[in-house]
Simulated assay, not measured.
Amino acid sequence: MLTRRHIRVKVMQCIYALIQSKDDSLEKQKKFLDVSIEDMYSLYLLLLSLWIEIHQMAENQLNLSSKKYLANASDNLPFKERFVANKVLQQLVNNSQLKEELELRKLNNWYLNEEYVKLIYKDILESDMYLKYMHTSENSYEKDKELILGLFKEIIAPNDKIYDYFEDDKLTWVDDIPIVNTYLLKHFKKVKENSNESFFLPNLVKDDEDMQYAQKLLTKTLLTNDVLEKEIEGKTPNWDKDRIAGIDSILLKMAICELLNFPSIPEKVTINEYLEIAKEYSTPKSSIFINGILDKLTKEYKETGKLNKMGRGLL
């Protein structure tokens, strides 16, 4: 789920937070990094649990409608139980491993903020894809999955109120939401009728090496800050260091640190990754500025033998 680029973003956020708080505690930042990465998985679980709450709301409404004497719009649906019986939703609702993980992390956000569930559920009931689904006699796992994918893509993922709620809950989730949404869509596309419960609980990172990479990048960048600053100053003689954008300075230090301390990552991968991050998080001209400095430094490091790369790159 968590890519190397997103790990770099997480490290950048940690360093930025340290500068803003003027707290030079390395252990505190390492802990912040671990928590920030782990919180991303909680966000993923919350989006899955949102489906469980939506299903519960639909089931409650179905039970109430069966006991009412007065009809409403939903009573005109030919297959009133179809959404509640959706096989993909059933896989989530009956997933004991998922329930255990939600309880372990105490993720009861939707119980405490039911208004968001009602908001999404209302949008679902009014959507054309839901109404079409509820009027279609064809009953298959693929049709059930198609509905869940469509509703997530068109209603849940772009919902501004849900986005604002996540942003208010945890600031780091602002950058995580697009990553998690994209991953969830891809993951739902792969689900099968016979998928086991663990399918919905993937690993947050590919392996321990990714977590080691994250901690090493953060630690090395912070501990060699003065050396990295001199490297940048040497390539920007006409620039006062205070004139370099804060994010640009952080990204440059991280990139230089990676060039010098991670021999298995090709320099082209490092440079391209930080240029892409700069385009998204800094000024319009930042990527050009950063590219110019890194290009000079890479050539210099190759000439002096400081750039020691080996093996296949870890993307």
Score class of each variant (00 low, 15 high):
residue 4 R to G: 08
residue 4 R to D: 11
residue 5 R to T: 15
residue 6 H to S: 09
residue 12 M to P: 00
residue 15 I to A: 00
residue 24 D to G: 08
residue 25 S to L: 04
residue 28 K to L: 14
residue 28 K to W: 01
residue 33 L to M: 06
residue 35 V to I: 04
residue 37 I to P: 00
residue 38 E to W: 07
residue 38 E to V: 08
residue 44 Y to L: 00
residue 46 L to A: 02
residue 49 S to Y: 08
residue 49 S to E: 11
residue 53 E to C: 08
residue 54 I to Y: 07
residue 54 I to K: 01
residue 56 Q to N: 15
residue 61 Q to E: 14
residue 62 L to T: 11
residue 64 L to Q: 15
residue 64 L to V: 14
residue 70 L to V: 14
residue 77 L to Y: 15
residue 83 F to C: 02
residue 89 L to Q: 09
residue 90 Q to D: 12
residue 92 L to N: 09
residue 98 L to P: 03
residue 99 K to Y: 04
residue 99 K to E: 10
residue 100 E to H: 07
residue 107 L to P: 05
residue 113 N to V: 08
residue 115 E to Q: 15
residue 118 K to S: 07
residue 122 K to Y: 08
residue 124 I to L: 13
residue 128 D to Y: 13
residue 128 D to V: 06
residue 130 Y to F: 15
residue 131 L to D: 02
residue 135 H to D: 09
residue 138 E to I: 11
residue 139 N to L: 10
residue 144 D to K: 02
residue 146 E to P: 01
residue 150 G to A: 10
residue 153 K to V: 04
residue 155 I to Y: 02
residue 156 I to S: 02
residue 167 E to N: 08
residue 171 L to D: 06
residue 171 L to S: 01
residue 173 W to E: 03
residue 177 I to F: 06
residue 178 P to T: 06
residue 179 I to R: 05
residue 182 T to W: 01
residue 191 V to R: 03
residue 202 P to W: 02
residue 211 M to Y: 03
residue 212 Q to D: 13
residue 213 Y to R: 05
residue 216 K to R: 12
residue 222 L to D: 05
residue 222 L to T: 10
residue 226 D to A: 12
residue 227 V to C: 04
residue 227 V to P: 00
residue 229 E to M: 09
residue 232 I to G: 08
residue 235 K to W: 03
residue 237 P to S: 01
residue 239 W to E: 05
residue 239 W to N: 08
residue 243 R to C: 07
residue 244 I to H: 01
residue 245 A to C: 06
residue 247 I to S: 06
residue 256 I to D: 03
residue 257 C to D: 11
residue 259 L to P: 06
residue 265 I to R: 11
residue 266 P to V: 02
residue 268 K to M: 11
residue 273 E to K: 15
residue 275 L to N: 08
residue 283 T to V: 12
residue 284 P to L: 05
residue 288 I to G: 05
residue 291 N to A: 14
residue 292 G to W: 12
residue 297 L to Q: 10
residue 300 E to Y: 12
residue 301 Y to M: 14
residue 305 G to E: 09
residue 310 M to S: 09
residue 310 M to T: 13
residue 315 L to C: 12
